[in-house]
Design a protein around this nucleic acid. Structure first.
Length: 576
RNA sequence: UGGGGCAUAGUGUAACGGUAGCACAACAGACUCUGACUCUGUUUGUCUAGGUUCGAAUCCUAGUGCCCCAACCA
């Protein structure tokens, strides 16, 4: 095959897809692509996992392969069944269908047999040293010291391992270690621990096992058993790859392709590939910190819309399409980078702009009285549901003498370039009439409580027959028809783009944004919103995209702000 | 002081020896019954220094900077 052709085919592909295409071209895996997404069920999935999910499941889709969802449940002390359900739900919500749903614990028996095999091959031993001794003897950069238990006989090792498994020894008293090289510059190769004793009930295997495999020992076999071709993990495992390979190679030592000989047939050896995990500005992504936020009440739970979990983004109003498009856009690489959170937000805007029906809602109301509109009369006006989607059709909105508009849409003394409602100037009420402010009513503190206006009946529908133009169009809601809703306005949980940067002696909590949630108890929504169902998206025109929250009750809808509309006016104002 | 990895506008990402392109951000403008959307234009970049070459982001050498590694976590 010619160099030119392959490089042309590879244009724009990330390094992982290039590896896959090269493998497919060489026939390395017989054209198969098998991946896996292997979360540990010790927390909810977050947006960083979404990158991995889109990568692993996406690869399987693109190359006609398969991707398994595999719970990496090798540590019974940290894992909870509660998380298992959320993980699968999040994967499916993102739009992916696991080829198989499997557990690392399904393979404990096979791994144990491999461990026995390594002992027989003189490649593993039971170590009686304490944790402290092991750590000390691992040494510094110059190398470590061999364990005094390193040369036990095969028989003794086999017997000890079996008794460890049966629970005859207390936690921490013994471990099984690989016999590799205590002088290796790679610490992972200095006789790494394969099994530790843990007398704990496992959510899948119960009390069957008193020893549990370490990640390095287990992971390659999980991949091997599932015939994973490309085992994709994050950068910090790069130093572990020699160990990943060593364990598989050691099992394969003495084995044959056809299964003849004392050790049997060779096992599958997946290729580990490392990529840089996702980092986003304004958020914290370590499970430890997320758990803390849930436990100490910083947020209301794993799916509090201010959390960076997938379930929180969902509740906040993000769509799987937006998250998938984002993950595709950011690509995959081998170097760390921090992506601006606004990039994610833009993908949501792009998606919701296309699909979200528009509706008028006034969050901070001020009353408008149309003094020349008859009391008690109602005009039902036509409004376009979604200008981006003609198929979305039309709806009727009621116009009456008393309306609500946004406080920010009226200024008695307008700043420069202000083209909303202001005394003596005409604006258009969206889908309705031109109105002109004539006078204001103020309370004792001087705050405007009512704006008295006149309307021009000839401008019904929003256009003037005489060709008169207005610069501003504002949204409104009929006071007597308004539906009171709760609206939750979310902002970043952290006020700084890098929450992990904080002064000496403090922690990230100093970076929490005290204004990350504002609740508006009685926003005024147009009546067409009645009956909106949980999870439905809307654009409140000139404001933001919202989704109906699960806290909604029959009497009262609750909306979460997913993302605001871009607002060049507020930008203009800030500039002064 | 050992080992492993990585460096392209403000932020991401492409270009795989042949004109440094795209998105977001920023800025200027057009359009507009959403100050939204859309459209047009502008600014800003190959970590540094050498070398190979007609030609280097790309190959070589040296340096600099950043990330990861000494859990019985994953």
């Amino acid at each position: 095959m010619s160099e030119e052709n392959t490089s042309a085919d590879r244009e724009g592909l990330d390094f992982i897809r290039r590896i896959i295409e090269a493998d497919n071209a060489s026939g390395k895996w017989g054209g198969k692509v098998v991946t896996r997404f292997p979360p540990e069920p010790n927390g909810y999935l977050h947006i960083g996992h979404a990158k991995s999910i889109c990568l692993n499941f996406g690869l399987a889709q693109e190359y006609g392969g398969a991707c398994n969802l595999r719970y990496d449940d090798t540590n019974p002390e940290k894992e909870e069944v509660e998380y298992v359900k959320s993980i699968e739900a999040d994967v499916r919500w993102l739009g992916f269908d696991p080829a198989k749903i499997v557990w690392a614990s399904d393979y404990f028996g096979t791994m144990y047999a491999y461990a026995q095999e390594l002992i027989k091959k003189g490649k593993a031993y039971v170590d009686d040293q304490t944790i402290e001794e092991i750590r000390l003897n691992r040494g510094g950069i110059t190398g470590g010291t061999n364990s005094p238990f390193r040369e036990r006989s095969v028989e003794e090792n086999l017997e000890l391992l079996e008794r460890m498994k049966q629970g005859e020894f207390p936690d921490g008293s013994k471990v099984l270690r690989a016999k590799i090289d205590m002088s290796s510059p790679n610490f992972n190769l200095r006789d790494p621990v394969m099994y530790r004793i843990v007398h704990a009930e496992h959510h899948n295997t119960g009390n069957q096992w008193c020893i549990y495999p370490m990640y390095d020992w287990a992971h390659g076999f999980e991949d091997s058993i599932e015939a994973v071709t490309h085992s994709i993990c994050t950068l910090e495992f790069e130093n572990h790859r020699p160990l990943y390979d060593w364990f598989i190679d050691s099992v394969n030592e003495g084995r044959t392709d056809d299964g003849s000989g004392p050790w049997g047939k060779k096992i599958h050896h997946s290729q580990q590939i490392e990529f840089a995990k996702l980092q986003l500005s304004y958020i914290l992504l370590s499970k430890r910190n997320l758990r803390k936020m849930v436990e100490d009440g910083t947020t209301s739970g794993w799916d509090d819309p201010r959390m960076p979990t997938i379930s929180a983004y969902r509740r906040k109003g993000y769509t799987p399409e937006a998250i998938r498009a984002f993950c595709k856009h950011i690509g995959v690489n081998k170097f760390d980078s921090v992506i601006e959170h606004s990039v994610l937000e833009n993908f949501l805007r792009e998606d919701l702009n296309r699909r979200a029906p528009r509706v008028m809602g006034v969050l901070r109301p001020v009353k408008v009285v149309i003094t020349n509109f008859p009391e008690g009369d109602v005009e039902w006006l036509d409004a376009v549901n979604n200008p981006e989607d003609p198929a979305a059709g039309m709806r009727k909105v009621p116009f009456t003498r008393e309306l609500y508009i946004e406080q920010g849409d009226f200024e008695e003394v307008p700043p420069p370039k202000y083209f909303r409602l202001t005394p003596g100037k005409e604006v258009r009420l969206r889908w309705a009439f031109f109105i002109k402010a004539e006078s204001v009513v103020k309370d004792a503190s001087g705050r405007v409580t009512e704006v008295h206006c006149t309307y021009d009946p000839a401008t019904r529908g929003g256009d003037s027959p005489d060709g008169r133009k207005v610069k501003g169009t504002i949204h409104w809601v009929s006071a007597s028809h308004a539906i009171n809703c709760e609206v939750r306005l979310y902002d970043h949980l952290f006020k700084t783009p890098e929450p992990t940067k904080f002064p000496e002696g403090q922690d990230w909590t100093v970076n929490l944004n005290p204004q990350s949630l504002e609740v508006i108890a009685d926003a005024k929504l147009e009546p067409s919103i009645a009956g909106a169902a949980e999870g439905q998206h809307f654009q409140f025109e000139r404001n933001a995209y919202f989704v109906v929250d699960r806290d909604s009750k029959d009497g009262k809808l609750v909306f979460n702000r997913a993302v605001s509309l871009k607002d060049s006016w507020s930008k203009e104002q800030k500039r002064g």
